[in-house]
């Protein structure tokens, strides 16, 4: 059965559009799976997602915000696998729930950044002329904002919180995507296959969305995946400064911050969330490199 399915997916002569699309996706997946680093990245990201979804179950019913001052700053033990923090909260449960916060931030930022960057970049690249000039100068302006400082200003003006952190990160994160999309579009727009659809009478919108955007998408996804590490670190940085997620919610950056005072005597309080940040950033980086190899048309 599975042999048949593989054969169906790998067929050189697919019999339907669905088979062709699935076959292509399958080959991409195989390429990732056969690349050890990318596979490691994919596994880490998958574990993060599972952790976020099943956090309550995995924590075994221990609440991440329940305080128990009697057993504060307890070292890792059978009862508290990763120990407890300064308010006696279970660090294992908090780290699991922290995955939710991290994943939320990552998803919200991607949802904002990728479409905005893609739209601005492809418009500018394809339409050219003054539209290009205006859009790209706006991009330059946003690119000139220092990310953390802008985020700080936002948090200061709108009040700290995850939503504001996401807005601040997104505002400074989209310009590089616009630039990538623009430079790709400029190259693609000159190619014969785009001229061919123009000659068929396709409207500008159709050319943009049906023919150019799908080609820019891959490099944007790769860049986004590689940027995830940076976004997670910025979010953690804001948390550390007290401007991201607010107590008592479990956020890795804020947890590291809380452990700062006791780092020499109770190392686990800051180290465990630190390791989580490290592993997840690494995972996204590895996955991004793998995706780049898969999407690179030259590799085939």
């Amino acid at each position: 059965m599975s042999g048949n399915l593989t054969q169906w997916l790998m067929s050189e002569a697919p019999a339907s559009r669905r088979q062709a699309v699935l076959g292509n996706a399958w080959r991409g997946l195989l390429a990732i799976v056969f690349n050890p680093a990318a596979l490691a990245g994919l596994c880490i990201v998958a574990v993060l997602v599972l952790m976020a979804i099943f956090a309550p179950q995995l924590a075994g019913g221990i609440s991440p915000i329940e305080q128990n001052l009697a057993s504060r700053l307890a070292p890792p033990s059978a009862e508290h696998w990763f120990g407890t923090d300064e308010l006696g909260r279970d660090i294992y449960a908090r780290t699991l729930h922290g995955a939710r916060v991290t994943l939320t931030i990552v998803m919200l930022v991607s949802v904002v950044v990728a479409p905005v960057g893609l739209a601005v970049g492809t418009f500018a690249g394809y339409l050219g002329g003054w539209i290009d000039a205006v859009l790209m100068r706006i991009t330059d302006i946003f690119l000139a904002f220092p990310r953390l400082v802008l985020a700080l200003a936002f948090a200061a003006a709108l009040g700290p919180g995850i939503e504001n952190a996401v807005i601040a990160i997104s505002l400074t994160a989209w310009p590089p995507y616009a630039r990538i999309a623009r430079s790709e579009t400029v190259t693609i727009a000159k190619s014969d296959f785009i001229l061919a659809v123009v000659m068929q009478g396709a409207s500008t919108w159709r050319v943009l969305f049906k023919h150019i955007v799908p080609l820019c998408l891959s490099s944007v996804i790769v860049r986004l995946t590689l940027d995830m590490a940076g976004i997670i670190l910025t979010a953690a940085g804001l948390g550390f400064l007290g401007l991201g997620a607010q107590p008592p919610s479990a956020e890795w950056g804020a947890m590291v911050s809380a452990g700062r005072d006791v780092i020499l005597d109770q190392w686990w309080v800051a180290t465990i969330p630190g390791i989580a940040i490290f592993i997840v950033s690494l995972g996204f980086n590895l996955l991004g490199d793998g995706l780049r190899d898969v999407f690179d048309p030259k590799s085939s």
């Binding site: 697919p14 559009r17 062709a20 190619s191 014969d192 296959f193 001229l195 061919a196 659809v197 000659m199 068929q200 009478g201 396709a202 159709r206 049906k210 023919h211 799908p214 080609l215 048309p297």
Partner: peptide, 26 residues
């Protein structure tokens, strides 16, 4: 129009079916 380079004149992410359907849809 038929172009010179058959490697550059077909959209790399579209199947033959997609490519031929497009003018009809337009």
């Amino acid at each position: 129009f038929v172009f010179q380079d058959p490697y550059a004149s077909l959209h790399p992410r579209q199947t033959v079916d997609d490519i031929l359907r497009e003018p009809l849809i337009i």
